[in-house]
């Protein structure tokens, strides 16, 4: 039996993530929602979702004493970060008057701004909400059977910015191009919500459940 643990740290709607993983999991796969570090450590794969504000997320991670566990599994198991679960892998976020994050990768999370505009001067709403195109900037097993520039569902007001270009595996355009997917060894992380992105999202989750963690 292969176990995928979805880390529950009390933030946001994790039911959707579990539902979608269960939908694509075969008979030999079990999906568990847990905040217990031991259970997370025993799983073959780990999904790190997240919603809400960065400050609350970081506090919740410490409240559940999950910081060490997250850093450890991110170093050695197939690991999927989603939305806030991608952002807090970086060093710092501008959210909540500045929040120190996990610092697994170099970079910061920045606000789109109250006065965000597109190329033609049109006003762009914040949050960036809805179906946008995900441009695959490199090959990866998790892109298997997903067309380049497929639409995924996004909802976020802050975006991921890293100095390490080698991490970037996907980009999205909202007024400017920003990093919406990263990959490094056994870690893959997305800004958008595969659990809410219909067929393309389910395909990505299915790819993850069958991934051995090799890039």
């Amino acid at each position: 039996m292969q176990i995928t643990a979805v880390i529950d740290y009390g933030m946001g709607n994790l039911r959707s993530v579990v539902n979608a993983l269960e939908h694509v999991a075969g008979k030999n796969h079990q999906v568990i929602l847990t905040s217990d570090p031991d259970q997370v450590m025993r799983a073959q794969r780990v999904v790190f979702p997240g919603q809400g504000a960065a400050g609350d997320c970081m506090r919740a991670i410490d409240h559940y004493e999950l910081r060490e566990t997250i850093c450890e599994v991110a170093a050695n198991k197939p690991f999927l970060g989603i939305c806030m679960g991608m952002q807090i892998l970086l060093e710092h976020s501008e959210e909540n008057q500045g929040t120190d994050c996990l610092g697994i990768y170099p970079g910061r999370v920045r606000y789109f701004g109250d006065d965000h505009h597109g190329d033609n001067g049109e006003k762009l709403k914040v949050p960036h909400m809805g179906w946008n195109q995900l441009h695959q900037t490199g090959r990866h097993p998790l892109w298997e059977a997903i067309d380049d520039d497929s639409r995924f569902y996004f909802v976020h007001s802050y975006y991921f910015e890293t100095d390490d270009r080698s991490l970037v595996i996907g980009e999205c355009d909202y007024g400017f191009s920003f990093t919406c997917a990263i990959a490094h060894d056994n870690v893959f992380a997305l800004q958008c919500h595969p659990e809410k992105s219909a067929d393309a999202g389910l395909q990505l989750l299915s790819n993850f459940i069958h991934w051995d963690g090799q890039a």
């Binding site: 946001g12 709607n13 039911r15 959707s16 539902n19 979608a20 269960e22 939908h23 569902y153 659990e195 809410k196 992105s197 219909a198 999202g201 389910l202």
Partner: peptide
């Protein structure tokens, strides 16, 4: 929510934090 994997919104009669929590936990 077990079958349809696009965003779901629920409205009508939401008055308390507990109402919201119940619907989000159900998959909204």
């Amino acid at each position: 929510a077990r079958e349809v994997f696009i965003p779901l919104t629920v409205g009508g009669g939401i008055r308390e934090v507990a109402d919201i929590r119940r619907l989000l936990n159900a998959g909204a």
